[in-house]
Write a protein that binds this DNA or RNA. Structure first.
Lengths: 208, 208
DNA sequence: ATCTACAAAAATGTATACATAATTTAAAAG
DNA sequence: CTTTTAAATTATGTATACATTTTTGTAGAT
């Protein structure tokens, strides 16, 4: 696990306080490396929205920003259905099977960590998206996911939402299996919208 | 002008051949700096699609990829109208005036460099987009533009396309002034689609 | 007392040197 | 002759040291 992942994990776990300014030397000492790899990691983390520029030098841990969340989900609502549509014609039985397995494994283990649930969630959609064989579009969507991760965090969400979300996954998969383009698109759009709304609700309740 | 800009300009001008592998030492000697700033610049250029990973080490100048162009314009067609819509309510007379000035200045100088035309082109849209005050969405759109730049290059395009494109700009601006949400959205979508198609046509004619 | 100018500090950018990882080349075995 | 393995080469990653830039603090003038 590289330094980038370590710092990201610590940001996700809330080790650094929003608003806090991170200095290269501090981090270098903290993780026991030189400033060079720290610089690289900070650049990347800034690109992905995990850190924001702080004046002319340094980076800061960004505050929670509801507008940013809204923007991220608005973009996902427009790009992910597009990608899924492009994938539809190329969906093999193998891909659909793998997608099914992922959902089943989530169903089977009712008490997975929030982190693992989030990962499998993305795995499900990603394995469908990859079938489209559109690398540029895929990595754009992937980056949006990474930016969302910052807000999703490791907090476990309500069991109720987990269930409806899981139900939506199965509906989408069914529509894909039937090759119903329209329905799959509609369901995915609603799925993302619901996820966004749920996230905003959660953030508003957790943060003052 | 930083090293990043220098290398990008040289990529845009075709100093490096598509497929060519770029080594840090070569570039360091070429631009007379050490490898550290080269590394930083290469990272960023790779993030923006100007360079692609080459195996487990090094980067290469990417080949022209029609699918990538299509993806970029598909994304722009979905994100830019969204951003413009969000801007519509906040458009002040001052912003609209500035947008108008940009178009007029393009009209006034009929023989600007292709590079300058491209810049003003983006300035026009950007000054409207900025009015939305949605930084996340804006920088996503901005990044898509940067990725498109690689294909647009410095080559001058047909005069015919310049004229129709300019006409579309005026139509969009008029719709925005009237506050016609629907029309402005439709026109912008078509504008981007036309630009994409024109670019693909151009690339197909220039490249074998 | 406030503002400006200049000096001291602190933080980041960059160069050089070394460590690690990857690729290639050559040698040996099948 | 092909394939495999190990050594040498080459490229990138990282540490340390130095340069540059930005910020902060202080002294003097208005």
């Amino acid at each position: 696990m590289g330094l980038y992942d370590k710092i990201k994990a610590d940001l996700q776990r809330g080790r650094f306080i929003p608003g806090q300014v991170l200095r290269q030397v501090e981090l270098a000492e903290l993780y026991d490396v030189s400033r060079i790899p720290v610089r690289d990691a900070l650049h990347q983390l800034r690109n992905e929205g995990w850190l924001s520029p702080h004046g002319k030098r340094g980076v800061a841990v960004p505050q929670f920003d509801p507008i940013e969340v809204e923007d991220l989900y608005l973009m996902r609502m427009r790009l992910e259905p597009l990608l899924q549509t492009l994938a539809l014609d190329k969906l093999s039985g193998e891909v659909l099977g793998r997608a099914n397995d992922i959902l089943d494994s989530m169903e089977a283990n009712p008490q997975m960590s929030a982190e693992l649930i989030g990962n499998l969630n993305w795995q499900f959609h990603a394995c469908i998206y990859k079938a489209a064989e559109r690398p540029t579009l895929f990595s754009a969507v992937e980056q949006l996911h990474r930016q969302c991760e910052r807000y999703i965090g490791y907090q476990s969400r309500s069991l109720q939402y987990q269930n409806t979300s899981q139900g939506e996954h199965f509906s989408i998969l069914k529509a894909l299996k039937r090759g119903d383009r329209e329905l799959a698109t509609t369901l995915l759009t609603q799925h993302i919208e619901a996820a966004g709304k749920s996230l905003v609700r959660y953030l508003r309740s957790a943060q003052p």
